[in-house]
Write a protein that binds this DNA or RNA. Sequence first.
DNA 1: TTATTATGTGAGTATATAATCATATAGTCA
DNA 2: TGACTATATGATTATATACTCACATAATAA
Lengths: 109, 109
Amino acid sequence: MLTKKKQLLFEKQAEIAKAIAHPLRIAIVDFLKDGEQCVCDIARYVGSERSNVSRHLSVMVNASILEYRKQGLKVIYRLRTPCILDFFACVTGVLKQQAKDNQKLLAAL
Amino acid sequence: MLTKKKQLLFEKQAEIAKAIAHPLRIAIVDFLKDGEQCVCDIARYVGSERSNVSRHLSVMVNASILEYRKQGLKVIYRLRTPCILDFFACVTGVLKQQAKDNQKLLAAL
DNA sequence: TTATTATGTGAGTATATAATCATATAGTCA
DNA sequence: TGACTATATGATTATATACTCACATAATAA
């Protein structure tokens, strides 16, 4: 049976995973892997409204995935947890597996 | 600007991340890291209804995180993508960072 | 055959999340 | 000061997700 301690840990881990689990947020993380960027440039890159991007950024700041600094009018965000990028390496592996499976299926038809 | 190709990749990655981003599903992954288990034992371990656990399991199978085999009446699930476990190492790092920040904040009050 | 057990799924409800629009805040510059 | 720009946030609506209950399926054993 699951201990209360583990349950709490899994809840926290799920919060962080949720904070990554959105295409737009993944695009932001990908954009930031080469260096910090302001909200305006992030919004331009991902092609979404600033207000929406701002919300997604705050989700990731709350989850400690990003951090920011203010510079004049601009707010500049950067990655705080580079190991997040390793996660995408794993996920890409899963996707390759999926693609292989689809090929097999296709070949079997 | 984001290419269509990248956008598609990020959508796929988000789907997989979503399939992990739930406390109960993380508990299941943790339970399975030491070996395959039937739905009945998984449900007992996580302390939730079988119908609910069954749904969570199918979410992870669809995302290629788990696979299963049938043995008589039982359906036995196992991890398919061990690198998923590395992800939790990263996430645990994030949580430690959060805890440190909270300590700093507390010390500053 | 019937009964039993393990699992999966449809339907309904409750809750969480995302996107948009309008507005607020706050820094900059003339 | 007022105009402009960047960012954040409240309110609303649309959509997605999770959980529960009832029922369906399917393997097994008596």
